[in-house]
């Protein structure tokens, strides 16, 4: 069975036409929905990669009016050939999930709650804390008198969720700041 991107298959005869309401009697939904077409009709197809294990299955995201409406395995990627496991198959609700964080949050010392903040506010505040820490604790030479340019009191953990380009920048940023406590999922 040949599949193209959307996983079309050969249908015999003129089967590609949708069922008409006549064929299906006077039924309402879900039959009506078939006549109205697929939820992905007219959707833009965008290629992405599953964010879980390193098989890196390819996924086709179906986008309508800027909204994700469906996602399926990419049949052309020679490794997964359209298939997905439970996690990969859940990409639609994983992305559109209302439980997700939508705004930068801040928890003040000793506070019992999160408060919403603007990006400008949190970036300013974080930059300030980074600089304060670096200025306080930067170690130029160690006990042996060796030049070490190090900031032992600060760290970066994560993340393999990041893209290659993001990892490269994180590493560079930490080198610049003198951070050597750097670790992530690769050591778990």
């Amino acid at each position: 069975m040949h599949c193209n991107r959307r996983g079309f298959m050969k249908l015999s005869g003129a089967a590609l036409t949708c069922l008409s309401l006549g064929q299906l009697g006077n039924a309402l939904t879900p039959v009506k929905a078939y006549a109205a077409g697929l939820k992905i009709d007219g959707a833009k197809e965008v290629l992405t990669v599953c964010p879980f294990c390193s098989v890196s299955c390819h996924i086709v995201a179906y986008v309508k009016n800027g909204k994700l409406v469906s996602s399926e395995g990419d049949p052309d990627y020679p490794i997964n050939q359209g298939a997905l496991c439970a996690k990969g198959a859940a990409m639609l609700t994983m992305t559109t999930n209302e439980h997700r964080l939508h705004k930068p949050l801040y928890r003040a010392p000793y506070s019992e709650q999160w408060e919403e903040k603007s990006w400008d506010w949190v970036i300013e505040r974080i930059a300030r804390r980074v600089k304060e820490t670096r200025d306080k604790d930067f170690l130029e030479t160690n006990a042996k008198g060796h030049r070490v340019n190090r900031l032992d009191s600060m760290f970066l953990l994560g993340t393999s969720h990041a893209d290659n380009e993001e990892c490269a920048l994180f590493h560079q940023a930490m080198k610049g700041l003198g951070v050597v406590h750097m670790d992530h999922q690769a050591r778990i």
């Binding site: 599949c3 959307r6 996983g7 298959m9 249908l11 590609l16 949708c18 879900p30 929905a33 009709d41």
Partner: peptide, 8 residues
Amino acid sequence: DRVHAGML
């Protein structure tokens, strides 16, 4: 719906 549209 998918089958009529030629999909699996």
